[in-house]
Write a protein that binds this DNA or RNA. Sequence first.
RNA 1: GGGGCUGUAGCUCAGUUGGUUAGAGCAGGGGACUCAUAAUCCCUUUGUCGCGGGUUCGAGUCCUGCCAGCCCUACCA
Length: 691
Amino acid sequence: MNQRKILVTAALPYANGPIHLGHLVEYIQTDIWVRFQKLRGHNCIFMWADDTHGTAIMIRARKEGRSEEEVIAEANAEHQRDFAGFQIQYDNYGSTHSDENKQLCGEVWQSIRDAGLVKEKDVDQLFDIEQGTFLADRFVRGTCPECNAEDQPGDNCSKCGTTYSPAELINPVSTLSGSTPEIRTAKHLFIELEQLHEFLEDWTQTGNHLQPEVANYLRGHFLGDPQSAEGAKPLRDWDISRPAPYFGFEIPDCPGNYWYVWFDAPIGYIASTQQWCERNGDTLDNWWKNDAAEIHHFIGKDITYFHTLFWPGMLKSAGYSLPTKVHIHGFLTVNGEKMSKSVGTAFKANTYLDHLPPAALRYYYASKLGSRLDDIDLNFDEFISKVNSDLVGKVVNLASRSAKFVKDTGLSTSYPDDGGLFESAASAGDEIATAYENCDYNKAMRLILELADKANPFVENAEPWNLRKDPAKAQELQDVCTIALNLFRQLVIYLSPVLPDLAEKTGELLNDPLLRWDQSQTPLTGSSVAKFKHMMKRIEEKDVRAMEEASKIEAEQESALTDNNSEQFVDSEQPMIDEPMTDECTIEDFMKVDLRVARIVNAEHVEGARKLLKLTLSLGGDHRKQVFAGIKAAYEPDQLVGRLVVMVANLKPRQMKFGLSEGMVCASGPGGEEVFLLTPDEGSKPGQRVH
RNA sequence: GGGGCUGUAGCUCAGUUGGUUAGAGCAGGGGACUCAUAAUCCCUUUGUCGCGGGUUCGAGUCCUGCCAGCCCUACCA
């Protein structure tokens, strides 16, 4: 077999947050593919890194009062800890905030400049004056200019679906500071992608670099179809720079401006390779400028655009190899629903590992992943039954039901007649390998489990538990177990990209490490057999529930911390229970009550009164009202003077112990310290009636 | 609004270039076994292949319209 040179990447985890089970779909998918290639004997390296630049990191560092470097160093350590926990093996883990990356970005940039692809344009963008920074769309909210829905995101309206620029929002508010941003004009650099149109049309539509639906998507949405009546659509210019302040690399020939994070992030793939090369005495050109080396990217469908248009364009301009293939996967849903941080279904890697084994998730994902972009669903009932039934019940069961019978004798010295079972399973290897190669892991798992379904009946019919009762049948017993253990070993080799842990334990059991795919083609004989130990635990429902519970609690704690402007309004029902709705009234009834805006012009304690404050309210001009209000426990007189309130102005005056009260001040709350005065919005004037 | 993908048994999905009575696993029902982590083995029930048209000797498969779901719609990670 020809040894291939294969460089693999997964999307770079963003250094602003923990890894959750959604991310792991991709990382496990990638790891399985890399392990598979290595098992097949290919020269495969997995180059990975943290994505560290951009506004989000900058803002977070500011909020936490520390440097960006500290934030990303912490994230890096956490990420690598989680990956180790899930047995994800990479050959280098770098950072986009590295010297190598800065250097490479400069080189790529220069070649794009030289190719005449860069131009300057002025861009109007909202600027947060308090924070001193330009605002990306997602940091702005405001009223939709189309339908007037309030509190909408900066790029499109969730009510009417209109898309707009944040500068068009009515009453825009910065979510960073709560202040009102202003529009400022700044110079931005753009890459004229359209100049590469023909190249991108060709690269995306031919050569099998992309899944067919992705190629269609790009043509339908961005490139247009040169053969169709509409013809090709021009590609828009790509805004590649951000003015200071920005956490990233400053553009050498454009001081005060930084590369947009999506420029330097994919170059991080190359920078990570650079680090690996330096450590291993290899050269970058050997991998990135070599037709004999394959380059495979694994990404989620959300970042398709960047990896299939910008990235090939950048590589092409800079003279690097183009991706052999971009493997794109769908998202993870949990019990059929979109993952949600607030509901607690965005399970963190760490939380999962506190309660459940990594192998279970690796297998479950493998059994669901196909080569297409469909979302996959994590359903815990299915998860439990699949892992237990397939892995423990069928696969591991083969070893646990036969190994102990040959603990003292070891495997037979020659492989007995098994009716062709081993041979047919060996020849299924090619089809399984093809499925792995094509990322059809669900097909691979199905094929492997079919083999397990043939192996168990063999043991059933051979009845080793009866053979061992008759000393005369010792050889037959050894032969049966030799067959069972070889079929088991074969399955484990096929499964080893998914279940490296099981492969290792099987190697120990049979005294023969499993390192190469072709070990599945030859039976193992004469080997000693170690004492059988549990290789995999059944998943128990209580552990899953405990994990779900833990995640829910984490989510609640987090939302308690950051819940200032969240979209969910979950209010207690208690007030309505305490004071149920009164009987219906007519508008005439309501109009009898003359509510007025009033200004508190004086407030003082009343000697001898436990609850009351004496307020003097102005309704404008000379109109003054004296009111005794039961708000002493909640307000200090000083705080009240000058503020506007709502009062019942035509209430029949009432003689109280301390004087005449000529109205009421409106407030809510049960009383005592919990009294809350109503405040009219800014702009209202004393004397105005409330309708 | 535009676009992409999906819709096959209760659940998760296979169904190759259109070709006999549409398949698997799980779940359900019945039985067997007891070596094995209440694991295993045998037998077994279930389908207007989203809906309506069309092409064809023949359509789950091709074309078309509709319905439903998911996703994308670029300066968002």
